[in-house]
Every structure is written in structure tokens, then in C-alpha cells.
Design a binder for these strands. Structure first.
Length: 485
RNA sequence: GGCGGUGUGGCCGAGUGGCUAGGCAAGGGACUGCAAAUCCCUGCACCCCGGUUCAAUUCCGGGCGCCGCCUCCA
């Protein structure tokens, strides 16, 4: 089997092959940094993080570009409210975004270009569009002419007539067609601006993605992604601009992630029903959040609620518990414990899910097949749980060979890593070890109490540790402890 | 109104023309000083109405509900 992806452009699943064999070029619309990231941003970033890891795990090299929109009306407005500069606002929120994504195990893209660093590229592109007759000036503004663009509306599957029928905004008198959109906006006095042959101004929103994607990935590249809400007008306009300027095709596959909803409604600033990543991380373990956002197919909505996160946390505990138990079982059998998958954030292929012939080949094959079908994470997760149940039975039954369990754990780590859910990778950073001597002393005291059948004292110690986030399990071979979460 | 998506057991969430994923929660059992973790067992789901078929949750037609987009939006 080979990889198939759902392409918004054709509204079908299509076999995917990169233009350059073995090398995928992918561009995803990143955040507009006017506020701190909410769960919706996390969902998008994680969706494409998993897509990227999947491509890599299937043996492809991925050049992944995700932009930062750091010039925009909302940033300017936010700056004005706080009496700060737009630069400051953008900088602060870019940092908040990066921190949040790192905490959720989202690997940094290959490149994260900022709009303000590419003004000259945008001006050049606008110049070409004006030259070729796809754009016109009106005052200090430059507009793109949708009527000049062949096939405008193809991506969002609607015609210009249909769009006009649904018009909700008063047409701007300076536009030739109501759907024409700004490539360059004349600066208002005192506003952030750059010089151009059309006067002082700043770029429209859509042109930055055309300029930056083509600069780093070429005129035609493999995958362009973003949230479902960007299909129209943002991506439609990108297509129009880019194909207008180059005369050749733009992105071949368009991938769009579904929303995070609250009470089945889109999470959005305007509805005031959003939850920031920071708030979430304060209340729940990061891997539980990541699990929640990976557990649904990337195109489906995920309805957020405290119960949903609680369920995800439970599922995550089962996965993490398995890695712990299997590791301990192997160690006590004197067998080698498979190493953790590459650390989070490492610019390395997410995993080695190589198929038949390898240890744990059957699970690897099923897992790969799930992801090859339009990145079917729910199915892939089901394989992971099947593996866990099966390997737990090996642990339970003493007659199982250590080599078999080691293969299962190795496969588990490799496969979970494709989803960014390898427990080893999450545990490593916080295994400071500074707690260990104190905890182990308490556990020795507790063992003495248990030996003396002073269970009140033993339970007291256990619950005191629990209050500090340390879970104690009494095993046949003695107590074991770990950090909760 | 146009376009797109979606409707599965208490909840989340795959999938399939008959052999009916997975997780969480729940109940019972094993293990344990008690727990925890783990294992075993249990619950007979597919919006409605027609049609095709030996057989439909799965295919076709119609209807209804919900969600999204229609120049803020991941």
C-alpha cells in the first residue's frame, strides 16, 4: 500500500508522491501573532506535525515551512490598545507560540519565516502581478483582480457569482470587482509601513504566503496546509496570486485540519469560548493534551470539554504505564531495554516504522497502513493499544521470552513516536533524579512498616507521596514509584 | 440562499454488504494487607422513511438534525 491524502482541491483522496522522489516540500499557514495561542492553534500545529512525522516515518525527507504573520491589522490594533509597538506585540506572541508548541511536543519546522522579513519578496511578486495585468492600483492600494484570474473559486468550490450572492460586506468602491482583494495597503499616517513604488504601505495578508512558500519551496511544491477556515478566502487568493505570477501550478495537495469546538461550536476569539494552551498546560499533563488532539482524525472536529481531556489523560496513562511496566519487566529479567525514540524536538525522523522482517513487524505494518490511509490516527492509535494489551499479556505470563517483549516495546516506542506520544521522550526531560534519594528513603521506611504490619503508617507514607505527585505501586519484587501525569 | 462536512453503544471515536476496531467510564472476577497497575469476563451501537439484496449500520433515493465557509479566524 502507499500513501493517500485527501486533497481539498479535488475533494478526493489521492495517491501522494512528491514531485522530487523522496523529498516532500510542505508549507503550512502559521499563526498571526496578535495574541497567545489557543487550543485551535495547537490542533493545527499538531495535525501537521503528525503529518510531517508520518511522511518521514514512511521514508521521505520533508522540508517543512511554517510562517509567522507578524504584520497585520490586529497586531497593529493590539499594539495601539496597549501603547506598545507592533514589533513588541509580535515578538511576545511569537515567543508564546513557540513555547506552547514546544511544550506540546511539536517539532520546530525546517524554516519559520516571518512576513516582515520578506517585504521585498512580496513587493517583487506584486510588481509581477501588476506587470502581467493581474493587479491594479487604486490610490496607494494595489488590488488583485479576481476576474483576470482563470479558475478563481476552484479550491473553495464556488463561482464568483455564488460568492456575490452570499456577500455580507459592502463592496469597496475602489475595487473593480467586489471580490478583489488587497495586495498592498496604503499606510495611514503614523502607521507601520514600508516604502514601495506605490507609496508607503504594508502588505495584504495573502501575499506573504505566496511569496514565502515559493521563495523556499519553489513555484510548484507538494503540500500546502492550514485550518479549514483558511480555504476561503486565504488559500483561494494564494492560488490566484501565485498561479497568476508564475503561470504554473502552485501547491499540488491542499490539506486542511478540522476545528476544536466547544459545545460543538468552533473555538474562536469572537465567540469568547477559547482556551489558551497556557491555561491547559497549567491544568493537565502536556502529553494528555497532545493525545486528545491526536486522537481524532485530522480533518474531524474535536469537541473540547474537561471530560474529554480527562479521558485522554486516562488513555495516556495506559500508554505511559505500559512503557514503564515493560521496561521494568525487561530490566528485572536482565534483558536490554529498547532505547527511547529520538527526543522531542530533535530534527530527526520521528521513528523507524519499517515494515516486514523487523521485530514487531505485524504491528508496524498495521500501523503504517493506518497512517497511509490519509493519516488515520484513530486507527493507528487502536493498533498501539492492541500492541499494549498483547504485550501486557506477555508480562503477565512469565513463560514469555524477554526478546519477544523487547521487540514489542521497541515497536511501541517507534510507532508512538510517529504520533509524538513515546512516553520515553516525554519522561526524559523531567527525570531530574534529585527526588530519588528522598523517595527511596521513604519507601524503605514504608517497607519496614509493612513488614511489621503497621499498615496505617505505610498508607500514610503512600498518601503523602501521592500528594506530592508521586505514585507508589507495590509489586511482587518490591515497590515502584513514578511521577503522576 | 450557495458550497462543504457530519449524524455509531453512557461519553469519545474507527470501520465494514454477512465474520460486528480501539479508548474512557461502568459492573463482576483474579491478584493485593488495602490500594495501584495488569489480566479475564459483561453490556447485543450504528438519525428517520422508502428502495436494491438471501442479507444494510454499510449501497441507492428522499427527509431531518448538527457543524463550518461565503473577505477577522488554526
Amino acid at each position: 500500500m502507499s500513501l493517500a491524502l485527501y486533497n481539498t482541491l479535488t475533494r478526493r483522496k489521492e495517491p501522494f508522491e512528491p514531485i522530487e522522489p523522496g523529498h516532500v516540500r510542505m508549507y503550512v499557514c502559521g499563526p498571526t501573532v496578535y495574541d497567545e495561542p489557543h487550543l485551535g492553534h495547537a490542533r493545527a500545529a499538531i495535525a501537521f506535525d503528525v503529518i510531517r512525522r508520518t511522511l518521514e516515518a514512511l521514508g521521505m525527507r520533508v522540508t517543512y515551512v511554517r510562517n509567522v504573520t507578524d504584520v497585520d491589522d490586529k497586531i497593529i490594533a493590539r499594539a495601539a490598545e496597549g501603547g506598545r509597538s507592533p514589533w513588541e506585540v509580535a515578538e511576545e506572541n511569537t515567543r508564546a507560540y513557540d513555547d506552547a508548541m514546544r511544550a506540546l511536543g511539536v517539532r520546530p519546522p525546517t524554516l519559520a519565516p516571518r512576513a516582515t522579513g520578506h517585504i521585498s519578496d512580496m513587493l517583487r511578486l506584486i510588481g509581477v502581478l501588476v506587470e502581467r495585468g493581474f493587479a491594479y492600483t487604486a490610490g496607494g492600494d494595489v488590488y488583485f483582480s479576481v476576474e483576470r484570474s482563470g479558475g478563481y473559486g476552484r479550491l473553495s468550490n464556488r463561482t464568483l457569482e455564488e460568492m456575490r450572492a452570499g456577500e455580507r460586506v459592502e463592496p469597496d468602491a475602489r475595487k473593480r470587482h467586489p471580490m478583489d482583494f488587497a495586495l498592498w495597503k496604503a499606510a495611514k499616517p503614523g502607521e507601520l509601513s514600508w516604502p514601495s513604488e506605490w507609496g508607503e504601505g504594508r502588505p495584504g495578508w495573502h501575499i506573504e504566503c505566496s511569496a514565502m512558500s515559493m521563495k523556499y519551496l519553489g513555484e510548484t511544491f507538494d503540500i500546502h496546509g492550514g485550518g479549514l477556515d483558511l480555504i476561503f478566502p486565504h488559500h483561494e487568493n494564494e492560488v490566484a496570486q501565485s498561479t497568476g505570477a508564475t503561470g504554473s501550478g502552485f501547491a499540488r495537495f491542499w490539506l486542511h485540519n478540522g476545528f476544536v469546538t466547544v459545545n460543538r461550536e468552533k473555538m474562536a476569539k469572537s465567540l469568547k469560548n477559547f482556551v489558551t494552551v497556557r491555561e491547559m498546560l497549567g491544568a493537565w499533563p502536556a502529553p494528555a493534551l497532545r493525545y486528545l488532539l491526536v486522537s481524532a482524525h485530522y480533518r474531524s472536529p474535536i469537541d473540547f470539554s474537561p471530560e474529554a481531556v480527562e479521558d485522554a489523560a486516562g488513555a495516556w496513562r495506559r500508554l505511559a504505564g505500559f512503557a514503564r511496566n515493560a521496561g521494568a519487566a525487561l530490566a528485572s529479567a536482565g534483558a536490554a531495554v529498547p532505547g527511547a525514540a529520538p527526543a522531542l524536538g530533535a530534527l530527526l525522523p520521528g521513528a523507524r516504522i519499517g515494515t516486514s522482517g523487523t521485530e514487531g513487524g505485524e504491528w508496524r505494518e498495521r500501523f503504517a497502513a493506518a497512517l497511509e490511509d490519509d493519516v488515520g490516527c484513530p486507527e493507528a492509535i487502536a493498533v498501539l493499544f492492541d500492541l499494549v494489551a498483547s504485550a501486557n499479556r506477555m508480562i503477565e505470563r512469565a513463560e514469555s521470552r524477554a526478546s519477544e517483549l523487547a521487540a514489542a516495546l521497541g515497536a511501541f516506542r517507534d510507532l508512538a513516536a510517529v504520533l509524538g506520544l513515546d512516553p520515553g521522550a516525554w519522561d526524559a526531560p523531567r527525570r531530574g533524579g534529585s527526588l530519588a534519594p528522598a523517595v527511596e528513603l521513604l519507601l524503605r521506611v514504608r517497607e519496614e512498616a509493612r513488614a511489621a504490619r503497621d499498615f496505617a503508617r505505610a498508607d500514610e507514607i503512600r498518601s503523602a507521596l501521592a500528594d506530592s505527585g508521586i505514585v507508589v505501586e507495590d509489586r511482587p519484587g518490591g515497590p515502584r514509584w513514578y511521577l503522576a501525569g
